[in-house]
Design a protein around this nucleic acid. Structure first.
Lengths: 158, 158
DNA sequence: TCCTTTCGGTTGCGATATGCAACCTAATAG
DNA sequence: CTATTAGGTTGCATATCGCAACCGAAAGGA
């Protein structure tokens, strides 16, 4: 396989493409942010985010389809529908938070409100970093992209 | 300020909105992924990602404008232009990696290739997690959203 | 009971973004 | 001195988006 073919395959099967298929549209992240902040109903999302109703409808539908939100009727009021995060959706938190921290650091220049704190110590959460298996923080210079086949071969040789 | 006004302000000034203004378009993340994987030239991005040339041109321009990529002429061949990550761009790595890990876990179902390893131990990097200031991993139940003013008041009271 | 409001949408329409293919200019290669 | 390569730009068709108006079912109020 040529270098070019290899790269093309890499890009096609990468988890990033897969993830972007599902949450890549402009409003998806903002809807998820809303859900993490406690929004549950259509009208709440609409008025708080300022999103067009048809787009919101479409995005909520997609997120439900992909198992990121669950859609349930509200038992107390049958007009209402509640949207809430599934485990799959909740697992997007590191993505949202790292994006938020980057935006705070490099674009808006200050911490946003509200702050996400450790419930017990009341300390804000730490910046999200890339770490080694043992927990050491890694910077780009400490890391290397390795083809999985090569990595297996290294392991065998050792 | 009403609860609704408060929330609306929260959403408008949030780091996520700021970040999405810059890297929120569909192809931006994929271009950045390419840059992290060593792509440098227009034609490399175009053939490897399969992106339309006009869109690629536009996105590269935007990323350069926002200081995420640097655009330099290639000293060896004056037809060529090299695009490379700035510090601001490199700092997006946690976002890219957490998105990739999520896609691998919940969509494609398997680890992508190539693997990012610790250069010295040859171990793949750890899953990206949310941690407390002291490094303890936190799950959603361990955390709480707090208004910054309230948090300051708590600190004063203590 | 009838009237009004709320909720979660859908529909129509114009503006915007996207993808594709052809074309262009400068620089290099042969 | 011709062909090829690199990095775009242009035109055109299509897809997506945002806005505003509308809708049906369910509550709420008199």
């Amino acid at each position: 396989m040529s270098r070019a073919e290899q790269l093309r395959e890499v890009f096609a099967e990468c988890g990033i493409s897969a993830a972007l298929e599902v949450v890549g549209e402009r409003w998806s992240f903002l809807i998820l942010r809303g859900a993490f902040n406690g929004l549950r109903h259509f009208e709440e999302f609409q008025t708080n985010l300022g999103i067009a109703r048809n787009i919101l409808s479409n995005r909520l539908g997609r997120l439900v389809e992909h198992g990121i939100l669950r859609r349930d009727p509200d038992p107390a009021d049958r007009r209402k529908v509640t949207y809430r995060l599934t485990d799959k959706g909740r697992d997007l938190l590191p993505v949202l938070l790292s994006l938020r921290q980057w935006g705070e650091r490099w674009i808006s220049g200050h911490a946003s409100n509200p702050v996400l704190v450790d419930r017990y110590t009341r300390q804000p959460i730490a910046p999200i970093t890339v770490q080694a298996a043992d927990g050491r923080p890694l910077s780009l210079g400490d890391m290397e992209w390795v083809d999985r086949a090569d990595l297996d071969r290294e392991a065998d040789a050792a």
